[in-house]
Protein backbone atom coordinates (compact mmCIF):
# COMPACT_ATOMS: atom_id res chain seq x y z
CA UNK A 1 0.00 0.00 0.00
CA UNK A 2 1.19 3.48 -0.62
CA UNK A 3 0.24 7.09 -0.23
CA UNK A 4 0.49 8.96 -3.50
CA UNK A 5 0.53 12.73 -3.53
CA UNK A 6 -0.43 13.65 -7.08
CA UNK A 7 0.19 17.11 -8.50
CA UNK A 8 -0.42 18.48 -5.04
CA UNK A 9 -0.56 22.21 -4.44
CA UNK A 10 -1.00 23.32 -0.84
CA UNK A 11 -1.61 26.61 0.90
CA UNK A 12 -4.41 28.89 1.95
CA UNK A 13 -6.96 30.91 0.06
CA UNK A 14 -4.68 33.86 -0.38
CA UNK A 15 -1.33 32.16 -0.38
CA UNK A 16 -0.14 29.23 -2.43
CA UNK A 17 2.85 27.63 -0.74
CA UNK A 18 4.44 25.45 -3.43
CA UNK A 19 4.60 24.52 -7.08
CA UNK A 20 2.77 21.29 -7.80
CA UNK A 21 4.66 18.14 -6.89
CA UNK A 22 4.15 14.42 -6.69
CA UNK A 23 5.59 11.89 -4.27
CA UNK A 24 4.95 8.31 -3.20
CA UNK A 25 5.26 7.01 0.36
CA UNK A 26 5.15 3.28 1.07
CA UNK A 27 3.49 1.68 4.07
CA UNK A 28 5.90 0.16 6.58
CA UNK A 29 8.37 3.02 6.24
CA UNK A 30 9.30 6.20 8.05
CA UNK A 31 9.70 9.40 6.03
CA UNK A 32 10.68 12.87 7.07
CA UNK A 33 9.60 16.22 5.68
CA UNK A 34 12.48 18.66 5.93
CA UNK A 35 12.45 22.37 5.32
CA UNK A 36 12.82 25.75 6.90
CA UNK A 37 10.17 27.50 8.98
CA UNK A 38 7.12 28.61 7.04
CA UNK A 39 7.87 26.52 3.93
CA UNK A 40 4.64 24.53 4.36
CA UNK A 41 5.56 21.36 6.25
CA UNK A 42 2.67 21.64 8.71
CA UNK A 43 0.31 22.72 5.95
CA UNK A 44 1.24 19.62 3.97
CA UNK A 45 0.59 17.33 6.93
CA UNK A 46 -2.73 19.03 7.70
CA UNK A 47 -3.71 18.74 4.06
CA UNK A 48 -3.06 15.00 4.07
CA UNK A 49 -5.00 14.69 7.35
CA UNK A 50 -7.97 16.48 5.78
CA UNK A 51 -7.84 19.45 8.16
CA UNK A 52 -7.01 21.74 5.24
CA UNK A 53 -8.19 21.48 1.66
CA UNK A 54 -5.55 21.17 -1.05
CA UNK A 55 -5.52 24.00 -3.59
CA UNK A 56 -4.97 21.45 -6.33
CA UNK A 57 -4.16 17.78 -6.83
CA UNK A 58 -4.99 14.90 -4.56
CA UNK A 59 -3.80 12.59 -1.80
CA UNK A 60 -4.45 8.98 -2.76
CA UNK A 61 -4.14 6.18 -0.21
CA UNK A 62 -4.38 2.63 -1.47
CA UNK A 63 -6.27 3.78 -4.57
CA UNK A 64 -8.76 5.97 -2.67
CA UNK A 65 -8.73 9.73 -2.86
CA UNK A 66 -8.73 10.78 0.80
CA UNK A 67 -10.86 13.79 -0.07
CA UNK A 68 -13.72 11.54 -1.11
CA UNK A 69 -13.95 9.92 2.33
CA UNK A 70 -16.27 11.23 5.03
CA UNK A 71 -14.47 12.77 8.02
CA UNK A 72 -15.18 9.62 10.01
CA UNK A 73 -13.82 7.29 7.35
CA UNK A 74 -10.74 9.44 6.91
CA UNK A 75 -10.12 9.39 10.66
CA UNK A 76 -9.82 5.62 10.41
CA UNK A 77 -7.03 5.99 7.81
CA UNK A 78 -5.03 8.99 9.01
CA UNK A 79 -4.05 10.12 12.51
CA UNK A 80 -2.02 13.23 13.27
CA UNK A 81 -0.04 14.68 16.14
CA UNK A 82 0.09 18.46 15.87
CA UNK A 83 2.61 20.85 17.38
CA UNK A 84 1.84 22.83 20.47
CA UNK A 85 0.03 21.89 23.60
CA UNK A 86 -3.74 21.93 23.24
CA UNK A 87 -6.20 22.75 26.02
CA UNK A 88 -7.06 19.40 27.62
CA UNK A 89 -9.52 20.47 30.34
CA UNK A 90 -9.21 18.04 33.25
CA UNK A 91 -8.63 14.92 31.19
CA UNK A 92 -6.43 12.21 32.64
CA UNK A 93 -3.75 10.68 30.45
CA UNK A 94 -5.84 7.52 30.12
CA UNK A 95 -8.91 9.50 29.00
CA UNK A 96 -6.81 11.54 26.60
CA UNK A 97 -5.39 8.43 24.94
CA UNK A 98 -8.90 6.98 24.86
CA UNK A 99 -10.05 9.92 22.69
CA UNK A 100 -8.17 8.24 19.87
CA UNK A 101 -10.90 5.60 19.79
CA UNK A 102 -13.64 8.15 19.05
CA UNK A 103 -13.78 7.67 15.26
CA UNK A 104 -14.39 3.97 15.86
CA UNK A 105 -17.28 4.48 18.26
CA UNK A 106 -20.92 5.14 17.61
CA UNK A 107 -22.59 7.29 20.23
CA UNK A 108 -24.63 4.63 21.96
CA UNK A 109 -21.76 2.17 22.03
CA UNK A 110 -19.62 1.93 25.11
CA UNK A 111 -15.89 1.41 25.25
CA UNK A 112 -15.30 -2.18 24.14
CA UNK A 113 -12.62 -4.63 25.17
CA UNK A 114 -10.91 -3.95 21.83
CA UNK A 115 -10.88 -0.21 22.57
CA UNK A 116 -9.32 -0.80 25.96
CA UNK A 117 -6.77 -3.24 24.56
CA UNK A 118 -5.72 -0.85 21.77
CA UNK A 119 -5.38 2.06 24.21
CA UNK A 120 -3.30 -0.04 26.54
CA UNK A 121 -1.11 -1.21 23.69
CA UNK A 122 -0.66 2.38 22.48
CA UNK A 123 0.27 3.53 25.97
CA UNK A 124 2.74 0.66 26.27
CA UNK A 125 4.40 1.36 22.92
CA UNK A 126 4.73 5.05 23.71
CA UNK A 127 6.00 4.50 27.27
CA UNK A 128 3.04 6.27 28.84
CA UNK A 129 2.15 3.59 31.40
CA UNK A 130 3.94 5.29 34.36
CA UNK A 131 1.71 8.36 34.20
CA UNK A 132 -1.54 6.88 32.94
CA UNK A 133 -3.59 8.11 35.91
CA UNK A 134 -2.12 11.60 36.06
CA UNK A 135 -3.96 14.68 34.85
CA UNK A 136 -2.72 15.62 31.39
CA UNK A 137 -2.08 19.24 32.48
CA UNK A 138 0.44 18.05 35.06
CA UNK A 139 2.74 16.41 32.51
CA UNK A 140 6.02 17.85 31.29
CA UNK A 141 6.07 18.93 27.66
CA UNK A 142 8.07 15.86 26.70
CA UNK A 143 5.70 13.45 28.41
CA UNK A 144 2.77 15.27 26.88
CA UNK A 145 4.23 14.80 23.41
CA UNK A 146 4.44 11.04 23.98
CA UNK A 147 0.84 10.96 25.26
CA UNK A 148 -0.40 12.75 22.15
CA UNK A 149 1.51 10.20 20.08
CA UNK A 150 -0.14 7.39 22.06
CA UNK A 151 -3.53 8.94 21.35
CA UNK A 152 -2.77 8.91 17.63
CA UNK A 153 -1.54 5.31 17.83
CA UNK A 154 -4.75 4.31 19.63
CA UNK A 155 -6.65 5.75 16.66
CA UNK A 156 -5.31 2.64 14.92
CA UNK A 157 -4.76 4.11 11.47
CA UNK A 158 -2.41 2.89 8.74
CA UNK A 159 -1.08 6.43 8.25
CA UNK A 160 0.50 8.34 11.12
CA UNK A 161 1.51 11.99 10.69
CA UNK A 162 3.60 13.94 13.19
CA UNK A 163 4.32 17.64 13.10
CA UNK A 164 7.71 18.47 14.64
CA UNK A 165 7.62 15.50 17.04
CA UNK A 166 11.07 16.16 18.53
CA UNK A 167 10.21 19.62 19.87
CA UNK A 168 10.41 19.64 23.70
CA UNK A 169 12.13 16.24 23.81
CA UNK A 170 15.43 15.72 25.64
CA UNK A 171 17.99 13.36 24.03
CA UNK A 172 16.69 10.38 26.01
CA UNK A 173 13.11 11.02 24.92
CA UNK A 174 14.27 11.61 21.34
CA UNK A 175 15.90 8.21 21.28
CA UNK A 176 12.67 6.71 22.69
CA UNK A 177 10.70 8.46 19.98
CA UNK A 178 13.01 7.11 17.29
CA UNK A 179 12.55 3.59 18.63
CA UNK A 180 8.75 4.06 18.78
CA UNK A 181 8.49 5.39 15.22
CA UNK A 182 10.59 2.53 13.86
CA UNK A 183 8.53 0.00 15.76
CA UNK A 184 5.28 1.47 14.42
CA UNK A 185 6.56 1.37 10.85
CA UNK A 186 8.54 -1.85 10.75
CA UNK A 187 6.49 -4.00 13.13
CA UNK A 188 3.01 -2.52 12.79
CA UNK A 189 3.38 -1.73 9.10
CA UNK A 190 2.27 1.88 9.44
CA UNK A 191 3.28 4.67 7.13
CA UNK A 192 4.95 7.22 9.41
CA UNK A 193 5.50 10.71 8.08
CA UNK A 194 6.94 13.46 10.25
CA UNK A 195 7.97 17.02 9.61
CA UNK A 196 11.12 18.31 11.21
CA UNK A 197 14.06 20.64 11.06
CA UNK A 198 15.94 18.51 13.53
CA UNK A 199 18.51 17.27 11.01
CA UNK A 200 20.47 14.93 13.30
CA UNK A 201 17.30 13.14 14.41
CA UNK A 202 16.22 12.82 10.82
CA UNK A 203 19.53 11.26 9.76
CA UNK A 204 18.95 8.55 12.37
CA UNK A 205 15.27 8.05 11.63
CA UNK A 206 14.77 7.82 7.87
CA UNK A 207 16.19 6.72 4.56
CA UNK A 208 14.13 9.03 2.40
CA UNK A 209 13.11 12.61 3.01
CA UNK A 210 10.74 15.01 1.32
CA UNK A 211 12.91 18.08 0.87
CA UNK A 212 10.88 21.30 0.87
CA UNK A 213 12.53 24.37 -0.61
CA UNK A 214 11.14 27.40 -2.35
CA UNK A 215 12.20 25.72 -5.63
CA UNK A 216 9.90 22.78 -5.00
CA UNK A 217 9.11 19.72 -2.90
CA UNK A 218 10.99 16.56 -3.81
CA UNK A 219 11.51 13.12 -2.28
CA UNK A 220 15.25 12.49 -1.95
CA UNK A 221 17.51 9.85 -0.50
CA UNK A 222 19.02 10.83 2.81
CA UNK A 223 22.61 10.55 1.50
CA UNK A 224 21.85 13.13 -1.17
CA UNK A 225 21.52 15.88 1.41
CA UNK A 226 24.56 15.01 3.48
CA UNK A 227 26.73 17.88 2.29
CA UNK A 228 27.01 21.58 2.92
CA UNK A 229 25.64 22.64 -0.46
CA UNK A 230 22.52 20.55 -0.04
CA UNK A 231 21.97 21.68 3.54
CA UNK A 232 22.33 25.31 2.49
CA UNK A 233 19.87 24.75 -0.32
CA UNK A 234 17.30 23.69 2.33
CA UNK A 235 18.37 26.08 5.08
CA UNK A 236 19.93 29.10 3.36
CA UNK A 237 22.48 30.46 5.80
CA UNK A 238 26.11 31.40 5.48
CA UNK A 239 26.75 30.24 9.04
CA UNK A 240 25.62 26.66 8.53
CA UNK A 241 27.79 23.81 7.30
CA UNK A 242 27.61 20.03 7.26
CA UNK A 243 30.45 18.08 8.81
CA UNK A 244 30.98 14.77 7.04
CA UNK A 245 33.20 13.54 9.83
CA UNK A 246 30.66 14.18 12.59
CA UNK A 247 27.65 13.51 10.33
CA UNK A 248 25.97 16.57 11.79
CA UNK A 249 25.43 20.27 11.28
CA UNK A 250 27.96 22.82 12.44
CA UNK A 251 27.51 26.52 13.14
CA UNK A 252 30.50 28.51 12.07
Amino acid sequence: MELRLENLVIGFEKKQLNELFSANFKAGNVYAILGQNGIGKSTLLKTIAGILEPIGGSCIWDGTNLKQLTPEQRAKEVAIVLTGRPFVADLTVEELIGLGRNPHKSWFYKESATDRALCHEAATICNCLPFLNKKAVELSDGQFQLVMLARAVAQDTPILLLDEPTTHLDPAKKSELLFILHKLAYEKGKLVLFSTHDVEFMFEAVKEVLVCTSDGFKLEHIDAIKDTAAINRIFPSKFLTYSEKLQQLKYR
Partner: peptide, 25 residues
Protein backbone atom coordinates in the same frame (compact mmCIF):
# COMPACT_ATOMS: atom_id res chain seq x y z
CA UNK B 1 -27.10 16.29 22.58
CA UNK B 2 -26.67 12.53 22.97
CA UNK B 3 -25.48 11.71 19.41
CA UNK B 4 -22.81 14.43 19.66
CA UNK B 5 -21.21 13.43 22.96
CA UNK B 6 -18.35 11.64 21.18
CA UNK B 7 -17.77 14.65 18.95
CA UNK B 8 -17.71 16.86 22.06
CA UNK B 9 -14.96 14.67 23.52
CA UNK B 10 -12.93 15.12 20.36
CA UNK B 11 -13.59 18.87 20.45
CA UNK B 12 -11.88 19.17 23.83
CA UNK B 13 -8.52 19.08 22.03
CA UNK B 14 -9.48 21.81 19.60
CA UNK B 15 -10.92 22.13 16.12
CA UNK B 16 -8.02 20.60 14.23
CA UNK B 17 -7.69 17.51 16.39
CA UNK B 18 -11.47 17.12 16.30
CA UNK B 19 -11.37 17.14 12.50
CA UNK B 20 -8.57 14.59 12.49
CA UNK B 21 -10.73 12.39 14.70
CA UNK B 22 -13.63 12.40 12.29
CA UNK B 23 -15.75 15.37 13.41
CA UNK B 24 -17.44 17.26 10.59
CA UNK B 25 -16.54 20.54 12.24
Amino acid sequence: FLPKLGALDSLILGDQYAQSMGVAL
